[in-house]
Design a protein around this nucleic acid. Structure first.
Length: 572
RNA sequence: GGCUAGGUAGCUCAGCUGGUUAGAGCACGUGACUCAUAAUCACGGGGUCGGGGGUUCGAGUCCCCCCCUCGCCA
């Protein structure tokens, strides 16, 4: 039994995530976590909401709530949606937790002790009416280059010229519109990543089994231009983790907070500590996952994320860990995903384009979405959601191949032999061949799952389902029963056992349907079928089973066109 | 403008370090079956692998040039 730590990139608190976000990190991480648990490994699966930063403050203001209350509400909403999608986190934490405050401050203190923090004075725009410093992109004005009157302080969207906020003509706050601005001197902490460059590069180079997508992004940041840059890790904001040096004040940094990208990945660790707290466990319980001096030396750590997150996870966060000089666990394998597109364009949170998690669940149960998203995960390149594809995939794979298989077996068995597992006959050459074939397929499935090849694993699982239909078609118990009922009983007994096996194998992808299948077979034995011939005899003659409701319904053409229209426009 | 990844059957995508007639699922056609959610199973048609050069006994698979898409960065 191995010990496996899994984290998913943590979704930003502001608003409900779309299916592109879901399939890029949380969902494949959940698939992997479920599979590893099913194989009997000890798994810790952590996710959280990423709550700090200006967008959260602005969203709270727009909602007319204090930012703390807004974040608490949105965390509850996201947690509920995660449950709805059956994301099996051991804990769904919050980056605003006290645990994260303490750990973030702890890391900053350690980095300072190691001489890796520099204090830098900068000039920044302060909005007197807003009573706050403005991030560059929240300052609007006329572009000195092209005259565009809504250029942002970091860049003019019209002529694409890179700007400094002080370049803008007639600058104003994009938050309040106020022109009552002034430039003030302010001091910030920088993480001296440059001095860790060689260490980071050596570490990246040691990861020869990582996807090219991952290492190429990391290498580019290490080597591009002047190489890896030092990074500001503090901000002049109200909402965030107060800058402290461990548990001591940080002179000169009063009233400032850590930058959201500094504290967010630390939440992976803090979230595990929150898990321990929530379960009334001592610190040792979470430290054995994260501290190689306290039991984590045999942990394998997997991270899941979209490609936009890769630089932070291959460089910034490892710089924090390595720089601390303490024996924290570094990531062992980083699985990154490309983007999912929506009907010929991008999913867009700001434009409300595409399908969002709450809307998806209001239309169809989680399994339908999980199956499509995972079987079409954007692994090697960006991939495309279309309603036609979704409809045909759900109807064919789930309803026709799997759902109908369960239906035909249970209904035939009930009609001919009643609702107990029939005892007649014994397995013959056809059954032996089926078990051999299935065993080989299961091994293929296992290697795909272990390699986190999500699409291939889905294809293998589907092929496993098809084997059941092939067997039935050639065995034809409905014909055999007329001349040799005992033989037909053996076929039915095997088919019912097959359904139980399919429940176990399918559970990582479609947990609800799997639970229905297992319950209908009157069993609760989820042991992975490593010994297949043995597993095929778990359901014994005389045990009762039932005919489940149809596992999956089909999507009609009318529904498809209706949804297509409803989700093409702006989100209400 | 720089960089990453792509451009393979009508659609969504596989094709590892170059090697027999380029694959899967869906869609389409034919047949079989009738237990089942008009489901299933078998067989079949369909691609000059973005374009053009080159290396090689041999290239979708390597090299060069060009065109197009997507994303990141500046």
């Amino acid at each position: 039994m191995a010990r496996i730590l899994i984290t998913s990139a943590i979704p930003y608190i502001n608003g409900i995530k779309h299916l592109g976000n879901l399939v890029g990190s949380q969902l494949p991480a959940d698939l992997f976590a479920r599979y590893m648990r099913a194989r009997g490994h000890e798994v810790m699966f952590i996710c959280a909401t990423d709550e700090h930063g200006t967008p959260a403050e602005l969203a709270a203001a727009k909602a007319g709530k204090p930012v703390e209350a807004y974040c608490a509400d949105m965390h509850a909403v996201q947690a509920e949606l995660a449950r709805g999608f059956r994301l099996s986190f051991d804990h769904f934490g919050r980056s605003s937790s006290q645990r994260n405050h303490r750990l973030t401050q702890h890391f900053a203190g350690k980095l300072d002790e190691a001489g890796l923090i520099a204090e830098v004075s900068e000039k920044q725009v302060f909005s007197i009416d807003d009573n706050r410093f403005l991030p560059d992109r929240y300052i609007t004005g006329t572009c000195p280059n092209c005259g565009y009157d809504a250029a942002r302080g970091d860049q003019c969207e019209n002529c694409t010229k890179q700007l400094d906020p002080t370049d803008l003509i007639n600058p104003r706050s994009s938050i309040s519109g106020s022109t009552n601005l002034e430039v003030r001197e302010t001091k910030h902490l920088f993480l001296r990543q440059r001095s860790l460059r060689d260490k980071l590069e050596a570490w990246i180079d040691s990861k020869t089994d990582w996807p090219i997508l991952t290492t190429s992004i990391a290498k580019k940041w290490l080597n591009d231009g002047d190489g890896l840059q030092d990074r500001g890790i503090t901000r002049d904001l109200h909402w965030g983790i107060p800058v402290r040096k461990g548990d001591q004040p940080w002179p000169g940094m009063e009233g400032k907070v850590f930058y959201v990208w500094f504290d967010a990945p630390i939440e992976y660790i803090a979230g595990t500590a929150e898990w321990a707290d929530a379960n009334g466990l001592p610190d040792a319980a979470w430290e054995r996952w994260w501290r190689t001096d306290k039991g984590a030396q045999d942990v394998t750590y997997y991270q899941f994320m979209g490609k936009d997150n890769v630089p932070f996870h291959t460089l910034s966060f490892p710089a924090t860990i390595l720089g601390s000089g303490e024996p924290w666990k570094l990531v062992d394998y980083l699985k990154s995903f490309n983007y999912l597109n929506y009907d010929g364009g991008q999913f867009s949170t700001s434009q409300g384009r595409g399908i969002f998690m709450d809307m998806a669940l209001s239309i169809l149960p989680a399994d339908y979405w999980r199956w499509w998203l995972l079987s079409h995960a954007p692994e090697s390149s960006d991939s495309e959601f279309t309603w036609e594809n979704f409809q045909s995939s759900v109807n064919k794979d789930l309803a026709d191949v799997l759902g109908n298989l369960v239906s035909r077996v249970t209904k035939f068995a009930t009609a001919k032999f009643g609702t107990t597992i029939p005892a007649g006959g014994s397995f013959g050459p056809q059954e032996t061949a089926l078990i051999a074939d299935l065993g080989a397929r299961i091994r293929d499935y296992e290697s795909c799952m272990e390699a986190m090849e999500v699409r291939k694993a889905a294809a293998e699982l589907r092929a496993i389902w098809v084997i059941g239909n092939e067997y039935l078609q050639s065995a034809a118990p409905w014909t055999v029963v007329k001349t040799d009922p005992d033989r037909a009983q053996a076929m039915v007994r095997l088919s019912l056992n097959l359904i139980r096996i399919y429940a176990i194998l399918s559970q990582p992808f479609i947990p609800d349907a799997a639970a229905s299948m297992m319950a209908a077979m009157g069993s609760d034995d989820w042991t992975w079928p490593s010994d297949l011939p043995e597993a095929m005899r778990i359901l014994q003659p005389g045990q009762t089973f039932s005919v489940p409701e149809n596992l999956f319904r089909k999507i009609t053409d009318e529904e498809r066109t209706d949804w297509q229209q409803r989700f093409s426009g702006i989100r209400a």
